[in-house]
Design a protein around this nucleic acid. Structure first.
Lengths: 254, 254
DNA sequence: CCTTGACCCTGACGTAACGTCAGGGTCTAC
DNA sequence: GTAGACCCTGACGTTACGTCAGGGTCAAGG
């Protein structure tokens, strides 16, 4: 069950080395490994690979791709729609290039010179950075995001493994508290909140305690966050929100 | 006379460093240097740069570009035609990618899985030969074009110099007539038209007199032609059109 | 005439996204 | 049971620039 690197490589028209590379930087880690350590790619991995390749075709850097796809609000469907628009824009740019070629041929044919500005106009049209802005707007760009981007850019696969384990521990803490029926303002829950804050500050961006409450607001105010968090356990977003708000209130009340 | 790196960079939407790089690897050396050592790019350099950028957009490596452009038989015109074909191929590839995105969105919507092979088909290496037929169809390759391509393939640098001078003479003829206030159906103008026809037939493709009118239609019907011709002198396209139409009418009226 | 800021020069090292071995297990297939 | 096709993990090489550093050039303004 699942495909080996070679099979995926052939299927997706990329090199084996490329898949190794994507794995090593944590962009696309196969969901399984065989007993002997072979990478085994499942259906979801292929979907993710397709996304990566679309972004790559559109001129995104691998770190940008990882960042965009790692955003909490990232949504496969939305991404596809964005990619569709971007691909359409890219074809428009190519059409303009073709017109520029025509103009050049035509100019030669009749010995007239093409205006220099027109000569290069199509080259300036397609700017992935423009879309990055859109992607950020869609999935959340802030100063914190910038800092996070800077810091996460250097993370290796092992770093991510560690971070994800850490995040899972935090999430598990919330869930345990929920299931135990702990109140959001109980000391047990406050401990989890503090771990949460530390893990964010350590791994992503400096988060002053006072602002943790704002982040918590987002978990319930923004559907995308809510959906994502509640995927783990329904009601988790609300619980996390309550816990953090209570903690902030207790800590910074006066 | 000539532009500095910064100016060219802005114009062509590339970085100054890129121009330095192209110079250092001998891909695009500015034809002049100012007294103080500044790179000065002339018109021909800009044309070459445009070519380089087209090739680059098409995925060629800089060494390949240098090799192709350094070949003894290399011809600007021929290259433009090749680039046109390849750009068309590339748009076809992008179209297929858009279809793949649509399929993915569609699949998500109705909960169907897309076949893995289809998922990555558009990423298949961009192979010009594969799409050549389709590209030609899109482009509307005519017999005249084929003949032109065949004939121009053998032209040398000197041939082109001669041809361009000839074209310029024709253009000058029209302009002189325009400025002198000659009517499009005057004998003086008819002489220019006949030169025009001969120069096309000699250098590019057999153009039966009757069809010259159709070509003339294009000069005013197709914005690209109009713009290009009028760059030399506003109203020239219309004047050439009228002259040729009058000539065809007079010659083939009955 | 002199300064200032925008621009240019030439090294030279840094980086991204892989390509390309090297050295060594794994897996079917006859 | 061994050949041949694949897989693994380093690790160094390559392409096409990005990014300083250290130092001239030039038009405008005080």
């Amino acid at each position: 069950m699942g495909r080996t690197v070679g099979e995926v490589a052939k299927l997706a028209h990329v090199s084996v080395r490329t898949l190794h590379h994507y794995d090593s930087i944590g962009l696309l880690a196969p969901s399984e490994r065989s007993a002997s350590g072979y990478r085994m790619y499942g259906e979801a991995d292929l979907d993710r690979l397709q996304q990566v390749l679309f972004f790559r075709e559109l001129g995104f850097g691998l770190d940008e791709i990882a960042r965009v796809m790692g955003e909490p609000g990232f949504d496969h469907r939305e991404a596809l729609e964005m990619q569709r628009r971007m691909l359409a824009d890219k074809t428009a740019q190519l059409r303009h290039m073709i017109e520029a070629v025509d103009a050049a041929i035509d100019g030669m044919e009749r010995g007239v010179t093409v205006d220099d500005k027109d000569k290069f106009e199509p080259f300036g049209e397609f700017n992935p950075a423009e879309y990055e802005a859109e992607a950020r707007e869609r999935w959340g760009e802030t100063d914190a995001y910038k800092e996070s981007a800077r810091r996460t850019a250097r993370y290796t696969k092992d770093d991510w493994k560690r971070i994800m384990a850490q995040q899972k521990a935090v999430t598990d803490g919330y869930i345990a508290a929920m299931e135990a029926g702990d109140a959001p303002d109980s000391p047990e829950v406050f401990a989890v909140v503090e771990n949460h804050l530390v893990s964010i500050s350590d791994n992503f961006y400096t988060l002053p305690g006072e602002m943790f409450g704002n982040l918590a607001e987002m978990w319930v105010a923004d559907q995308r966050f809510t959906k994502n968090i509640d995927k783990v356990k329904p009601g988790l977003a609300q619980f996390q929100h309550d816990a953090v708000k209570a903690w902030v209130a207790a800590k910074y009340s006066k």
